[in-house]
């Protein structure tokens, strides 16, 4: 199972003075069970890209294939695709509308045509999965804190049992603990359920800590598509387009430039610590 993008282009307001090419010749293959980070500054095309993955936006040219099927085929079940590829927008708590949390999470499954009972089971599972305590289930979603609301909104998409979930900056505006809680929950879900996760983020530190592969978008094009180490090796090129590597990667590079025998392939505090300790151990031996 996979999703393949073949030479996808997208042009906003084609034929007018405001014409903008938001996606340029994008080729991608996302395999089942991957944990992918998408980075790029505002306007780099990352939001446009993820909306193509579940068919909310339609490519101006090029093809998208989900499990080998052309999603632009006129017989293709587009609504079915939307429940297979779940998309959690930025500030998803703004879409909550039901009188209770439980009912709100049921909205997706009911739209899929499930019975009330089945939808309820799904909602229960999803809310459990995002770690919301049970006594809150029948409260109004509007009484929750920001972090809790966000989790309800994520549960609303999870309840549709998607094979792949895309999250557009799920931690925007949350405090550090809230941020870690959400990201840990997502990582756990990926590990336990084997669901494919695409995480759009501005935080290089977060991306480096969780994902296995990073796609860097710049001016509508895929600039890099590699492992975190592989991408952040190009920290100079990233800087040139207004992005940066995690702070620890810079530190290691600077240490190495000063002639210290340190490995520079680290993007998290954990791995950087290991590299530095390894270097000190090797110095000690000498």
């Amino acid at each position: 199972m996979s999703i393949i993008l073949n030479k996808v282009n997208y042009v906003y307001s084609a034929g007018t003075a405001y014409e903008i090419q938001a996606l340029k010749n994008v080729n991608l293959k996302i395999e089942d069970g991957e944990f992918i980070g998408v980075i790029g500054h505002t306007g780099s095309g990352k939001s446009t890209l993820i909306q193509h993955l579940n068919g909310l936006m339609r490519a101006t040219s090029g093809g998208i294939y989900y499990n080998g099927e052309d999603i632009y085929d006129k017989d293709y079940d587009m609504r079915g695709l939307r429940s297979k590829v779940g998309l959690v927008f930025q500030y998803p708590e703004h879409q909550l509308f039901e009188t209770t949390i439980f009912d709100d999470v049921c909205f997706g499954p009911l739209n899929q045509g499930l019975s009330k009972k089945e939808a309820g089971v799904r909602a229960f599972e999803a809310l459990n999965c995002v770690g919301l305590s049970e006594e809150l289930y029948y409260q109004s979603p509007f009484d929750l804190s920001g972090g809790q609301k966000r989790r309800v909104a994520i549960a609303g998409v999870l309840a549709m049992k998607p094979e792949m979930i895309i999250l557009d900056e799920p931690t925007a505006g949350l405090d550090p603990k809230g941020r870690d809680e959400i990201l840990d929950q997502i990582a756990k879900m990926h590990k336990e359920r084997g669901i494919t996760v695409v995480l759009v983020s501005h935080s290089m530190e977060d991306v480096a800590k969780y994902v296995g592969r990073i796609i860097v978008m710049n001016q509508g094009e895929v600039m890099f598509d590699d492992t975190p180490n592989g991408v952040f090796r190009h920290y100079r090129e990233l800087e040139a387009v207004g992005l940066a590597a995690p702070a620890v990667t810079y530190l290691l590079h600077e240490l190495s430039e000063r002639g210290l025998p340190v490995g520079t392939e680290a993007t998290t505090v954990e791995t950087a610590k290991k590299e530095i300790l390894k270097m000190l151990a090797s110095l000690e031996k000498r």
Partner: peptide, 11 residues
């Protein structure tokens, strides 16, 4: 207090 420190400080 649900906060953290910058990555360099943590390292």
């Amino acid at each position: 207090y649900r906060l953290d420190v910058p990555q360099i400080t943590l390292l």
